[in-house]
Design a protein around this nucleic acid. Sequence first.
DNA 1: TCTGGGGTCCTAGGACCC
DNA 2: TCTGGGGTCCTAGGACCC
Length: 421
Amino acid sequence: MQMPHYPRTIFHVDMDAFFVSVEELFDPSLKGKPVVVGGDRDERGVVSAASYAARQFGVHSAMPLRTAAKLCPQAIFVDGHPERYREYSHKVHEVLEHFSPLVEMASVDEAYLDMTGTERLHGRPLKSAHRLHAEMKSVTQLNCSIGIGTSRLIAKVSSAKAKPNGVLWVLPGQEAKFLAPLAVGDIPGVGKVTEQKLHAMDIKKVGDLARFDDRDLEDRFGKWGLALAGKSRGEDAGGWFDNEVGDSVDAKSISHEHTFNEDTGDAERLLSTLMRLSEMVARRLREAGFFARTIQLKLRYKDFTTLTRAHSLEHPTQMDNQIFEQIRNLFVAHWKKGAPVRLLGVQASHFERGSAQLDLLEPDQQQRWQNALAAVDHLRDKFGESAVGLARGMKGGFRERTHENPVGLPGKMPAKDANKD
DNA sequence: TCTGGGGTCCTAGGACCC
DNA sequence: TCTGGGGTCCTAGGACCC
């Protein structure tokens, strides 16, 4: 993580209307039509992606589906297919790896490449960008846009300006000049709230921002103000942007949430949803090899008021039943009984790589527990989530953790009185 | 318009310890 | 009896991104 002493060449590769384009590959009849990915026109939810034809009507991502339907009644609404997007994301990644060993997927449909020093192999930046662009099209049949600059920030902003299907190179030394005429909202990290605050200070363009004193901005916005000052000059100032391209960072949290199609105050239904969410989170913890110390409940009522309540455990866990136990306690303690709920969420965070509980065991016993858990996950793959219940939480409680049962798995044949509570 | 789901980072207050 | 300051952990909430 040391700063390079020469100017870097960073590519930001951003797939054009990625979800829509992938859907078009599976159903070519969608091509050229107004398409909205995210769900049915009358569903509770938002637009994940809109085709360029749909955008003509003012439809854009994050917009409520029902609003999109009003703006563009003739649009075709399709469900998203995350597996398809992951599959194509892998193809994209493979293409990119032909161009640099330092590739970082920033999400399913965009990536940063550090192309510094690849001139001998690939030629000048514009030439390699055009080759990349062509190879992407021929291998994946998908269009992308490429931004080139001396920082992630410049690469990212220039790829947005290159859309659709274009390449844009900001020459070293021209960063501030490139940014100056752009709206402050074009800076990644500047959303509605910051934009409003800046507008109130009569800062509309990045150039206006660049003329402000760093100290001034720091006084008004704290740490974020200092980062803003740097960004106005094209620097990767502050936070995630400062990471070298290709530095992999461990996940900090794993969560699942669910919005009901209609609000419900039915305790049974709410608890079984929390159980399902807990299982999904636990399973991903096991896949990642993480044990979580903090478990958090998210509760959103009918009127959209949202609260989060967390609890930290003495012993980190990756078990369904232990997670659900915490979630249930938090839920019972904070849910206004009978109040209609719109959304429930379960989050795990503060990860550790191992478990003090498992560490108490001999290596071969540890292996047996891990094998047992893997077997359960395998059965669930085969027969569905409900086939194997690690957590029988709804009506009863949980097995106590003991030395013989260090992670709180239910026994093979739970006796009638096996559950406490 | 009536607002998804999965994440990251930052702030701020209170507890607790030295 | 009135009163320090710094560090760290925990919790809650909010802005933002794709």
